[in-house]
Every structure is written in structure tokens, then in C-alpha cells.
Amino acid sequence: MKPNRFILLPVLFMCFLLIMEVSCKSAKPEPDIAGEYATGNGGDPQGGATLFVLPDHRFVVIFFGGASMGSWEIKDSTVLFKPKVKQAGFDLYGKHNPKLGDSIRVFFEGFDTAGGAAIGFDASSKNVKQVFNDSPNCTEFPYIGKFAGQPTKIVLTARPVDQGGSIVAGSEWQIYTFDNADHYNDFIARYETAHAQEQSQDFNAEIKNGKLYFDGKESKRKPLSDAKGELKAIKQLLNISLDPETVWYNPYFKEAEPGVEKDTLNYRFDKQKNAYISFRNYLEGEENKSEKDGDYNGMNVVYRYGKLPVSKSTGQVRLDSKPLFTAKCRGE
């Protein structure tokens, strides 16, 4: 028997209304938590931080000596904050330095953490030299290596390490081969390991009566305001890449904030020095002072380093285990 469509239509319509009613009841509006919070948590290793929660599900934590940023979501009555974390591995940045002549210089950043990282200049032979001794401690700053010649390939390699800093058993060498097609001779080598990252960078807050509680303590909310340009600065931080194509350092290897080349009110490019100069404050020759006598925090001279392209592989290397640097505490 053929069903009567005039009977079915009202039934279907009633089902539709029932589904819509259930959906509306279950789809509760998300609490408005956007604002500025003073908190002793917020992923801050120093214990005190200012947390900016944006309505677009992004956040920034400002703490002593740094900042962290990422995304947030609400599950039940809990706000989950997930900071962006840079992937473990190597990056290499370079620039031209006429003072070095027929040699190169490498500033090693993060190589003293773990993993027995090594450097080499022959991609075919895979001959590499260990940068630090095993389990370095009482390290100083900066660690700079100088090498003869101007290689077209630079190899950085290490075996992966776990959160405790131990080399993963049975693991192969992670080999990063950088192409120095631009013939740079002054380098920033960065090494990020899982050991260098905190075991748990995520943090959370509880929502109670429209307020946020961190570790059981209420954090008072202030409205987001751009009266002093803070909100604009926060959004600029959110746009900073964890994997930039360009980095900026002063002569004493302190990293500068990006955007120096756009700050024409304070900086001009000096072609001879291959640097951006703070023309209001710069004293001729100040960049030539030693690391001991120079101003580590000064940004009167800022160099641009460009990222080198890389190919990645795994395998074995020929390791010279005598390290370039030995970092040990007295008495060891």
C-alpha cells in the first residue's frame, strides 16, 4: 500500500520541531572570558604573569623575561590553554661578515641542553664534531665556534632525546643538511630539544560564577583596552612565527624583536656595517667591543640573519666525540 504523503508531512514537521528544541537547549552560549588577568599560573616558570584572553580563542601570557602565546577552548567548566610550542630540531641563520675573511663563525644556541649535537661541513662524508661534552653544566655565554674555509653545506645533527634529556635508545641520528648558497660566513645555529621544553606547558582555569580560578584562586578580570596600545602589541605578539625566515641579533647575541627594518624613526641601514643602526644613540665602533665589555642589552646595532634552506634525513654519522666546548662545574 502506498503511504499517504499528507499524513507523513505533519509527522515529519513535528520531528523537526522536536530536534530543534533539543538542539537549542543543548547549545548553551559560551561564557565571555575575554579580558586581562593577573595570575600566578599562566604557564609562567617564574610564578607571576599577566594573561590576556582574546575573544577569538587566542591568548598571550606576559611574564618576567618572556612571553607565551597560543589558543584556548572551553570544555564543561574548564578553560584549556594550549601554548604554541616550537618543534624539536635545528635551524640555521646566516649573514655576511667581511671582518671574518676566509673563515666562518657560528654562535651555538641551545646546544648545551642535551643530545650530543654535532656539526660538520661535508655532507657526503658525514664527518661531524661534537659541540659540547656529554651532560654539560655550569655553562657560560656565549659559545662561539670559528672554522677555516667557507663551506657550501653545513651539517647539524643529533640523536633524539626524551623529556628527561636521555638519548632515545636505538634511535638514529637526525641529520639536517643546510645549503649555504648565499655564501654566508656568520651564523646563528639553534637547537631545540624536547628536553628543553617543559614537560607540560598546557594550563587551565576553572569557570565559577563567570570568573576564572587558577589553582583554586580567583583572578580578577580587567576589560581589554587599547588606550595605551597594549592590545595592539598583544596582537603583534600573536603574529610572531615560531619558525621565522629572519631573526635579529645585536653584536653580543641577544635577540632583538622583529620589525627593526620597519622602524625608520629609530633605525637606518648601514650598508658598510651590514647592520641597522640606531642613529640617535649609536657611538661609532661600539659593536667592536668584546662580549665582556659590550652592552648585552643594547640595541644600537642590530644584524639581520636569513634562514638557510635545509634537507632532513636519518642515518649514521662519523662522530669525533672530542667536543668543541667543555662545560663542567668545578670539582667534577
Rank of each mutant, 00 (worst) to 15 (best):
P3R: 12
L12I: 01
F13H: 02
S26Y: 15
P29D: 14
D32W: 02
A34F: 00
G35L: 07
T39I: 00
G40C: 03
N41G: 13
D44R: 08
G47N: 10
G48A: 15
L54M: 15
L54C: 13
P55N: 13
D56I: 07
V60C: 03
V61H: 00
F63N: 10
A67R: 11
S68M: 12
S68P: 08
S71Q: 08
S71H: 09
T78V: 02
P83A: 05
Q87I: 14
A88M: 13
K99L: 05
K99V: 08
L100C: 06
F108K: 14
E109G: 13
G110P: 07
T113R: 11
A114D: 09
G115A: 12
A118M: 09
N127P: 03
K129D: 13
K129M: 13
V131T: 03
D134Q: 14
T139K: 11
I144H: 11
K146M: 05
F147W: 15
F147P: 01
A148V: 10
A148S: 06
V155D: 10
A158L: 08
A158F: 01
V168H: 05
G170C: 01
E172F: 07
Q174A: 11
D182Q: 12
E198N: 12
Q201S: 04
D202T: 05
F203H: 03
F203L: 09
A205H: 02
L212P: 01
F214V: 03
K217H: 02
E218H: 00
K220M: 07
K228D: 08
E230S: 12
K232D: 11
K232I: 01
I240G: 08
D243L: 10
E245G: 10
T246M: 13
Y249D: 05
N266F: 10
N266L: 02
R280Y: 09
R280A: 13
L283R: 07
N288P: 04
D295I: 11
Y296K: 14
N300Y: 04
Y303F: 15
Y303E: 02
P309Y: 01
V310H: 04
K312N: 08
G315Y: 09
Q316C: 04
P323W: 14
